[in-house]
Design a protein around this nucleic acid. Structure first.
Length: 541
RNA sequence: GGCCUCUUGGUCAAGCGGCUAAGACGCAGCCCUCUCACGGCUGAAUCAGGGGUUCGAUUCCCCUAGAGGCUACCA
């Protein structure tokens, strides 16, 4: 069989050779240990936290080694592409402050010298390599119908061989030149398949940066290299692109471990050097049946990165949470360096966990609380405003009109040695501090309406907001004592029946009048921010 | 079914042949206190099971079980 002739029959217009292509992609000049890696999303309209997780590992490895982190758009599956998805992708990276060294710009131009960074623009490159493979007898054209869901075809392939033979050779692998020519003349579309050199009994080993040494059955299947539309499925695109682009560490989900033998055989057929893999575990949840399962975009709101924007989590909180589950050393580092930005953390590949973590919203919340607690009132205000502009325009309006006041509210119990740590997402504010933005419309249950009324009417009589907290508290106690409340808690506890309540009870009434709630930050501080007039009005009911 | 990966408290985990098996979140209790939050203290809770190897296994080996993944002209 003259494979060269066959290749020319298939691709009469492809004149370039792999050498020509390689000439355009010179090896990168890198410092020792510099990692070149990439984020290779499909523009399907959302980013799954699992993809984001991988991207972040990849990014961190590049950053810490002063390497190159690039973005490659994997748009080979046009069926799944969604309008506006590319813009959204960039928006997400931007919000998290993730910068790519090389990427395809939205205007169609590339930033970087190893492009195009969009797979749909690389069709000819793939065909050059495919043609070369055919010319060397390592691949062949396949005119079969797609086998998806077609069990009988799959069965036919398997049963062609002896029992227990794991080979899946494609029926088209041994077509004669004449047969192929007939198809071509007929205008039939063809896919290109790898002519696997294996027979099903070979084994291969490879090293994974996270899992270590892995031994597996070698590929023995004539896998598709180019679909009949000329576009490669993932494995071939991965081999060609990552080789040309100089990727030296591929970070991907562990679901790819099983297909690594296929990738390795493709690299081998192409004559490429294999690339180091880092198969990282998937972010999971406990399902209804009590088992682990991957976080799913269908059932779990937190699967989509948009969720964190909508809820108003600070992006650093999400990143630090991820760092926490990726790198066991991060938490210790954070404890020792409470003031440093996460970017200073020396991300280590050896510390990447091999186990699928279960997403823990409590932990995220805790990290977020600590991050927010360190912000100034102004920062909090700016963040809330930014969030509200996007998701709560009315509230954003209010915040802008009452900026000074809103900043004061954001500053409640902020700073100092014991900052308040109860807010973990911006969407909480309106509900949480609602009473600071409008008079409470509802009140939590009052245990003794008569006492409540009596106390407030007495307390609000001639109410003046003192300049000092102590003074204010003394005032409260005076009124309380006058009405028969215990101001000494020990006395009260010893004989509760003798009093209407204690100072705490009196404060509860004031708090209720002011906020409608039984829990709130310091009453005096709230009154100071509300102002004497407003405070008095609320006390009078 | 076949192949691959994973297995320390509820969750994230330290541990790399000898420890009363760290720490964090969460949970419970106590203290502080005008309430909540913060902070402090205390507590409950873990080596999947079975075999080896060894003077000694959470740690090394094997088996079993459980969970996850792959088995497409999807990635």
């Amino acid at each position: 069989m003259d494979y060269k002739k066959l290749a020319d029959l298939l691709y009469p217009n492809i004149k370039e050779t792999p050498e020509d292509i390689f000439a355009k992609y010179p090896p990168r000049q890198l410092k020792d240990g510099a990692v070149v890696s990439r984020f290779a999303p499909s523009p399907t309209g959302f980013i799954h936290i699992g993809n984001f997780f991988q991207m972040f590992i990849s990014y961190s490895l590049c950053k810490v080694s002063n390497g190159v982190f690039f973005l490659r758009m994997e748009d080979t599956d046009s069926k799944r592409e969604v309008e506006g998805a590319r813009e959204f992708l960039y928006d997400v990276l931007d919000r998290f402050g993730i910068k790519c060294n090389e990427y395809p710009n939205l205007d169609g131009k590339d930033v970087g010298n190893y492009g195009p960074y969009v797979q749909s623009k690389r069709k000819e490159i793939y065909q050059v390599f495919a043609k070369d493979l055919v010319a060397r007898g390592k691949a062949f054209p396949c005119f079969c119908k797609k086998t998806e869901g077609k069990e009988e075809i799959l069965e036919e392939r398997k049963t062609k061989f002896l029992e227990n033979d794991e080979r899946e050779y494609d029926p088209c692998r041994d077509l004669s030149y004449e047969e192929v020519k007939k198809h071509i003349d007929n205008g039939d579309k063809f896919a290109i398949r790898l002519r696997t050199k294996n027979t099903g009994s070979e084994r291969i080993t490879f090293h994974d940066l996270i899992k270590g040494h892995i031994e597996a059955k070698a590929n023995a299947k004539d896998v598709v290299l180019l679909k009949n539309d000329g576009i490669p499925p993932y494995p071939f695109a991965h081999a060609v692109d990552d080789t040309l682009m100089g990727t030296n560490v591929v970070v991907r989900g562990e679901e790819y471990i099983s297909s690594t033998p296929v990738h390795l055989e493709i690299f081998d057929a192409l004559g490429f050097k294999p690339i180091a893999y880092c198969h990282n575990p998937s972010v999971c949840k406990i399902g209804d049946n009590g088992n682990k399962r991957k976080v799913s975009k269908r059932y779990d709101p937190e699967a989509k990165m948009m969720y964190y924007f909508e809820e108003g989590y600070p992006t650093d909180a999400v990143l630090e949470y991820l760092l926490n589950i990726i790198n066991s050393g991060f938490e210790k580092w954070r404890a020792e360096n409470p003031e440093k930005p996460w970017q200073d953390f020396r991300f280590g590949i050896n510390d990447i966990t091999a186990v699928s973590p279960i997403f823990d919203i409590h932990k995220l919340n805790d990290i977020s609380k600590n991050i927010i607690a360190k912000m100034s009132a102004e920062e909090v205000y700016e963040n809330i405003l930014k969030w509200a502009k996007e998701f709560k325009p009315d509230f954003a309006n209010y915040l802008e009109k009452n900026k000074d006041y809103a900043i004061k509210v954001c500053g409640i119990d902020r700073g100092g040695l014991k900052p308040r740590k109860d807010i973990y997402k911006w969407s909480m504010i309106e509900e949480y501090f609602g009473y600071m933005f409008h008079r409470p419309t509802e009140k939590e249950e009052i245990d003794n309406a008569e006492n409540y009324k009596e106390f407030l009417s007495e307390y609000s009589k001639g109410f003046v907001l003192p300049a000092e907290k102590d003074e204010w508290f003394t005032g409260v106690k005076m009124v309380a004592e006058k009405l028969g409340y215990a101001t000494d808690n020990k006395l009260y506890k010893a004989n509760p029946e003798a009093y209407k309540g204690n100072t705490a009870k009196a404060c509860e009434y004031i708090r209720l009048a002011l906020t409608g709630k039984k829990n709130s930050p310091d009453i005096y501080e709230l009154m100071t921010i509300l102002g004497e007039t407003e405070a008095k009005a609320r006390l009078k009911g």
